[in-house]
Write a protein that binds this DNA or RNA. Structure first.
Lengths: 140, 140
DNA sequence: TATTGTTATACTCTATAACTATA
DNA sequence: TATAGTTATAGAGTATAACAATA
């Protein structure tokens, strides 16, 4: 299995792959603790920042709009989200978290242990260095 | 939305979340280019490192063994993987990549652009720092 | 005509439980 | 009896295509 990438970059990519795997597991576990699927938790987390039209949720999640219908249906059936009419355009439905949904979204974020465990290994200075490197990588 | 985490750690976690999102998209895109689902690509990538029993694949992917049957079925139908008997235990089936599967796995890894784009922003020294910080975080 | 959200359909992934063939 | 792999089943996510209401 030869590769065209230099060993250093290759190792960084592998390490990032490991981070991705751990983060993903943590996210799914946190969602499951609230009896939510990963997709449901992602939509709820998005709406907790700002209510938005169904179509915009699909754009943010990079999936087809038709999928959002079912996910919001299930969140609505649990009383975590509601659909509101958009006064400006009667075709649009705005999805918004209920108070219960907002609480769940906050709980969900706080129960993401990922921050505590791997990050606790680093000093504040190291975290600053890491932050700056990640910002540069992501063009932020 | 109050949080109990300090702003620095919070930002690092958010940045890591962004990295996770981009990496995941890249992975799915690379898999789709080869007409594979993400799960199929992950199994193929695993077997490219080393053939292994069905049950061990499930352990590595942290899912139920029954799911692996279908994924390997589909990879086998495409001629990318084959099931071999284990001489030591006739209950066991070893899943192994075919030559075609090995080629696909290598192509797949090389077409993971994630390495080139975000990482290209960093100098070799910065990549070394990033590698060491990630190693520390992951306890490697 | 174009757009928003929905429905219908088909496929994949996932967990659970029951089955088979070995051990 | 215990284990490896499979099958059956049900729920969820996904893309595609077609549809109703509205713009």
């Amino acid at each position: 299995m030869p590769s065209r990438m230099d060993p250093l970059s290759l190792e960084v990519v592998e390490l990032i792959g490991t981070v991705v795997g751990r983060y993903y597991e943590e996210y799914e576990r946190a969602a499951a603790e609230h009896s939510l699927t990963g997709a449901q938790a992602r939509v709820l987390g998005l709406l907790a920042l700002e209510p938005m039209p169904m179509r915009q949720i699909a754009q943010k999640l990079k999936c087809e709009p038709s999928n959002i219908t079912g996910i919001v249906d299930r969140l609505e059936a649990r009383g975590l989200v509601e659909r509101r009419p958009d006064p400006a355009d009667r075709r649009v439905k705005l999805a918004a978290p209920t108070p219960d949904g907002l609480t769940t979204a906050t709980d969900l974020r706080d129960s993401l242990n990922f921050a505590r465990e791997p990050l606790a290994e680093l000093s504040a200075d190291e975290r600053t260095v890491l932050r700056d490197l990640l910002r540069r990588m992501l063009g932020a």
